[in-house]
Computed example of a mutant assay.
Amino acid sequence: MRGEYKVPGGKLVAVDVEEADGRLSSVAISGDFFLEPDAALEDIDGALVGMAATSTVAQLTQVVESVLHEGVTMVGFTPEAVAIAVRRALGHATRWEDHTFEIVHEGAESPAMHMALDEAMAEAVGAGTRAPTLRIWEWGAPAVVIGSFQSLRNEVDPEGAERHGITVVRRISGGGAMFIEPGNTITYSLTVPASLVEGLSFERSYAFLDDWVLGALSELGIQATYVPLNDIASPAGKIAGAAQKRLASGAVLHHVTMAYDIDADKMLEVLRIGREKMSDKGTKSANKRVDPLRSQSGMARADVIEAFKNHFRSRYATVDGAVTDAERARAAELVDLKFGTQEWTARVP
């Protein structure tokens, strides 16, 4: 059995394993990584032989680390990367290539409906009734989206929100507040089975699931990088923020909002915490725009989105898809019971 794992920003680790009586009877690690001294590779292979086929990534990582003496140097990979490749070989984890992804890009939705569609479609992925999905959002109204655990009163100025017609909604993932203006942001959700990030910590899974969009940005001439824990930035500054939720059903929801061309003055009138963050960056001038994607790519928003979709298609097996009637009905129910209610929006006052 063979498993592979490409380290985000690093090298490919491959492993061929044989299993007998519930244990690893043969292990051969290979890849385009760098390792010194050469004999360390045999030590790693030997350490893994005899491990239970049900061993976790943490257990496999620990046994690899146990044979790495002080003089061993690993470049482009880690003990954890070896462990993930082993788990994939044993069928406990999947690769991007094991899935066909739906790309869903439909018309504008209300902020509450977007929150609900995320949950409904993640439920469907977890239940196996939907393939892994990349969904591009179109916004029907300006909004502030706060994280699951944020304080409503600490994040949002209600007078500023009312003055600018801003709808405030709360999502199911953690992280910080997002200021949204239709046409001035790019938001997408990547919903995948948990097997794709099996064994990855939250931090590593952010980098893993953001890797494709870094490639898309590079094709547009933007040299973006992942900045732990959940940001994407270029030398000119922050481009995007991500948030993630792992559902008990077995799905992982990873969504990202990118600034295309945002009115910073308006944002500061609506987001309380934003005033401190922006003042730290020296952003105080009138009519300031936050426009990394527009200014750095020189492209229209719609063209940037098409470039993103085309890059995703070039990397993975994809089909064009749509929200199903059942998913839309479930989302409408979630709007009524949860995302459209003050009880949910103000659940952390």
Rank of each mutant, 00 (worst) to 15 (best):
L190P: 00
R130F: 01
E102D: 13
E306P: 01
G9P: 05
M113L: 10
A194F: 07
A302M: 07
S55Q: 01
S110K: 06
G71A: 14
P132S: 09
M299V: 02
L134G: 01
T225I: 11
T345P: 00
D263S: 13
A141S: 11
R294W: 15
I180V: 15
A322C: 14
S151Q: 10
S218F: 08
Q296Y: 09
M51P: 00
A81K: 00
Y260D: 03
T100F: 13
A326H: 04
A81H: 02
T133H: 06
I146P: 00
T61R: 09
L229W: 14
F77R: 02
V67C: 05
I146V: 14
T341A: 06
N184I: 03
L200W: 01
G298T: 10
T341K: 04
F149K: 09
D325L: 10
V64C: 05
Y226Q: 04
F101N: 05
G221C: 13
R275Y: 09
E343A: 15
Q223K: 12
G31C: 06
H254M: 09
L35C: 13
R95F: 03
P8W: 03
L268W: 10
R289L: 13
P349W: 12
R2Q: 14
G241S: 10
P349H: 11
G46R: 05
Q150T: 12
D16F: 09
Q296A: 05
I232Y: 04
V169L: 02
Q150K: 07
A207D: 09
A131M: 14
G199V: 01
H255W: 04
A120Y: 00
R2M: 09
L217Y: 02
W344T: 02
E155R: 11
R315Y: 10
K338A: 00
G250E: 05
D45S: 10
D263P: 09
R153Q: 14
V63N: 08
M1D: 08
L24C: 05
L214N: 02
H105T: 07
F77N: 00
T73K: 15
S314F: 11
R23N: 08
D291S: 12
E36N: 11
V86S: 02
N230W: 04
G31E: 01
L209F: 06
A40Q: 06
A216Q: 07
R171E: 01
E80M: 07
L41R: 12
D16W: 03
L60S: 00
A259T: 07
H311Q: 11
R135W: 05
E36V: 15
V348I: 14
Q62R: 13
I103Y: 08
D280E: 15
A108E: 09
D16L: 08
V49R: 12
I29M: 07
G221Q: 14
S25H: 10
A161W: 05
T94V: 11
G165T: 09
G3T: 03
R328D: 02
S279P: 07
